[in-house]
Write a protein that binds this DNA or RNA. Structure first.
Lengths: 138, 138
DNA sequence: CGGTATCCTAGGCGATACTG
DNA sequence: CAGTATCGCCTAGGATACCG
């Protein structure tokens, strides 16, 4: 575990790095690289599917059961886009009844990095975030 | 700079950490903490405003000029939500003509952590991300 | 200068029903 | 089991015009 001082140092480091990056890359544009990547993963179910598949290969029905509230349509739809993104692979077994397995590609697995950072941030500001979410969206 | 081997180790670490977290926290829900925090920052202009303010205190007109494509309405609207989120402060100077300055709070600055992680990921998969973004949204 | 108010549209998302 | 097809809502976001 990092000490508090260490965490503070890291925080300022990232703050300064972002400032520098701003000067180098033109990212104050609606199609900046940050918005581009966000638009790929910031959908209602994308995260949840990625997270579920981090546990390993899963079938359609497993995902349907484990992801709370998702409909078959949205599951298929989101999986489709994840496949075209190259984040998920789809493997069909020619059996009766049919069996289809979904798994993460290397690209899909790589999303664990930003997601972990977001999770760490979310947890360290959890009270604030949850309060705001409730007030704003519920 | 980390070596390639070191980067690979870190990647697997995050992958495994996420797996473990899944077991502990119930995050396969549409109001999981990850989706909650994403819903706060994953809007079209939120990121850009946060990034712009990482450079320091700014006036309304400065933001309007620096953020490519944003309309006055969306700037005000997004700033408002950022203020209720406690990420941005608004300071009015009683002058003529009026002057208003926006700055990041500690909470706002803290978003540099997940944003930096997302930026690192975006850059290391830039070719892929940009290609997908173009195909999907343009 | 720094906002509001009003109207409008595209598309994300849901519900329901049907197929191989 | 693992999908498609259809319809329809709702709201984020844009255009435009008007205050203090």
């Amino acid at each position: 575990m990092d000490s508090i001082v260490e965490k503070q140092r890291k925080k300022n480091e990232n703050y300064l790095k972002l400032q520098q990056t701003l000067l180098v890359k033109s990212i104050l544009d609606e199609s900046c690289i940050l918005n581009q990547s966000l638009s790929l993963i910031a959908n209602k179910w994308t995260l949840l599917i990625l997270m579920a598949l981090m546990q390993g290969t899963k079938r359609n029905s497993e995902l349907l059961r484990q992801i709370n509230g998702i409909s078959p349509k949205m599951l298929t739809q989101t999986l489709k886009s994840l496949i075209t993104y190259g984040m998920v692979t789809r493997k069909v077994f020619p059996e009766v009844p049919p069996r289809v397995e979904y798994a993460l590609t290397e690209f899909g697995i790589s999303t664990a990095d930003p997601l972990m950072a977001l999770l760490n941030w979310s947890v360290s500001w959890e009270e604030q975030v949850t309060k705001l979410y409730k007030e704003t969206f519920l």
